[in-house]
Structures are given as structure tokens and as C-alpha cells.
Design a protein around this nucleic acid. Sequence first.
DNA 1: GCATCCCGCCAGCCG
DNA 2: CGGCTGGCGGGATGC
Length: 386
Amino acid sequence: MALSSSASKESGSGHYTYCRKEKSLGLLCSNFLSLYNRDDVETIGIDDAATRLGVERRRIYDIVNVLESVGILARKAKNRYSWKGFGGIPKVLQDLKEEGLRENLNTFEGNNNTKVSDDDEDERFSNPSSSSQNDRSNPSSLKFLVSSKTDNRKEKSLGLLTQNFVKLFLCSNVNLISLDEAAKLLLGDAHDPSTMRTKVRRLYDIANVLSSMNFIEKTPHPETRKPAFRWLGMTGKFENRSASVLVLNESKKRTFGTEITNTSLKRRKVVSSVDGNMNQVMKPQLHVQVKHEILVNEVDRSNLEQDSRQSSKNYQFGPFAPVIVPKVGASENGKVKQVHDWESLDCTYRPQYHNQALKDLFVHYVEAWKSWYSEVAGKSPIQLFS
DNA sequence: GCATCCCGCCAGCCG
DNA sequence: CGGCTGGCGGGATGC
């Protein structure tokens, strides 16, 4: 009641009906990355991003928070972030891992159990400090009262959650976790179904953006069949094989721009009125802006070794990598399996434009990328099986 | 039907 | 005190 069901009218006049997938955080993240993953970018404004990507600021915060937690961005000031890029990722992950392991040893009871856990993980990340109004502080575990009153909020931030989520992978032997399990672990306690649901929602958000960067990958659990996430930051720890950086980094830098920039179609209620004509907010739909993304830079720079010696970081974060990105694994034989077929790409990314021109443009990009890719693949060990 | 997760209200925080 | 941030969970969408 109260609100009328949407999609009331539609008539065949191509009035594209709302599509949730085009609004996903993952996609938005990809677009965000393709928009700012350039070396000549050092500062990013929330408003600018929101405008360019055509979304509300709120959504930018979501993305920015997780990107920051992984070191790709750094908050510089109000409304201002600085672009750090993927170069520092390895170090950040390393730090997170150490931190996570360290935190893990905070079991007050000195029972030095050398990780006997067979499968049951009992993490004790983040300090307890129940946030329930009912203060019944468990006397037994009064670790650090770190939570400084109001900062209780920070404990629940997306950024922190992201880091803890990542630590889960980095610090445990399990590399396949379902969000439910993750939520449970990261919650430590409180089986409160409500809290769980919220936590899981957040994890979905996080998982989506991490997926878009190929840090993790969604995959059905071998047995359970239940969807779970697998870590694939830098495939195989620190393999320091020569490996010539990424395969694609020279030649011209051409990429197919991701865009799909959301139309301003809201999901919910159509709120009657104004039917028959788009009001101002409802800009004549996308258009411009679609082109400055065309020259977006490609994958991270070639020289991403700069910190310590022994670079060895040939992790391959897809720049905007559509869910399936090539696993440029630098395998010794170069037989790298390409789980890559344009079919799925197309499927994944097919935007359903209601604008023919745009659609053509999209197709164009795909084609461009395709030819470029095979071009590169042709002179490199990789081979995309036809 | 349930898993996924977008949307945006609205409470803190910060200039 | 207004605007920036971003927790939170209703409920739409996807399958």
C-alpha cells in the first residue's frame, strides 16, 4: 500500500525499465577506476566523480571507502582524495596480513595452540565491546576499551570491514569464504540475526567492489554449492619470477571504455506525474562524457616496481576488469588459461542502452578491445583460444 | 522463495 | 549551523 507498483506503464515506446545490474557498486567501481586510473590524476573530488559517473554522492562514498582501505586512494581533505594507484597494494596487503596475524594472537589465555584449527575458524578480530544498549559488559574479556564512545561508529565503517574481510583471506588458510561465514567471523559474537543481515549486506557491497578489481572472485563452493568468494590478489603468494610485467602495457594504450553510465532511472516508484516528458533531471540520457573514457589508460603502469627491491609484483589487477579478466598468471610456459570469452563479457557488460548510438559505441569498444587484445596476444606467450 | 544489494533517510562530524 | 560523511536496513530485483 501507499505506493503504487512501479512499471505501471511502459508501452512499447522503448521506455527501458530499470535494470539493477547497471547500478551495481562493482560496475560503478570499474567505471570509477577506468576514469581515474591514470598517472596524470592525483586528486579526485567526490562531486566530480559523482557527476562524471552520474551517480549520487552517497555511492561514491561507498566505493571510495573501500578503495581507500586498500590504499588505492587516500583522503586528503574534505571532498578530496588523492589517487595512489595500485602500486602500493602489495605492501598494503602485506601490512594487513601482518596486522591481522598479530591481532590474532591476542588470545589472552596463553594457550599456545599452534593453529590446530582444522576448519573451524575462531577469529577475534576487532575488539568486542558490544554495542548493544544493554550494557552487560562481559567481565571476562575486557581487553582494550579502544572503542572511544562515539568512535564506535568507525568500527563499523565499510573501510574497516573491508580490511578485516581481506585479512580473513590473508591470515587464514581458507581461501574460500561465503559472506555468511565471513560475517559470522567478523562479528565474533552477536548472533543477532538483524546484525548479521546488516553485516552481510555490507559484505555484499564490499565483495562487489573487490570483485570488480579482481581481488576476489565469486565462485560456488565445491561441495556446498553455495556461492563463496576466493581470494586471488596476487595469484600464488610472492612468486618472484622474472615475468615481464603484464602482457599488455606497451604499444598504444587502447581500452574499451566502460561506461554504462547510469541513466538516471530510479528504481522505485515512478511517482506519477510528469509522465510523457522527461523533466529536467532526466537529462536526455547519457551522451557526452562517454568519450573521455575512451582514452583511459590501460592497466597499471609498466614500472610498478619502486618500493623495495625485488619487485616481483606481477599481480594483475584488472583495471576495470569485467568479472572475468585474463588471468595473466605469468606461468612458466605461458599456457595461461584464458577463461575469457567475449560472450560472457558481452553478457556481463551488456548495457541495454535505450540509445542506439551508445550501444553501437559500446560494441565498437568491444571490437576494438578484441582486436587489440588478439594483437597483443599474438606476439606474446598468451594465446586466447579461439 | 530466497539470495543479492540498491536506495536514500537521517544521524554524526567537521569545518 | 549548514554541508559533508556514511551507517543502516527497507524492500526491490534477480534467478
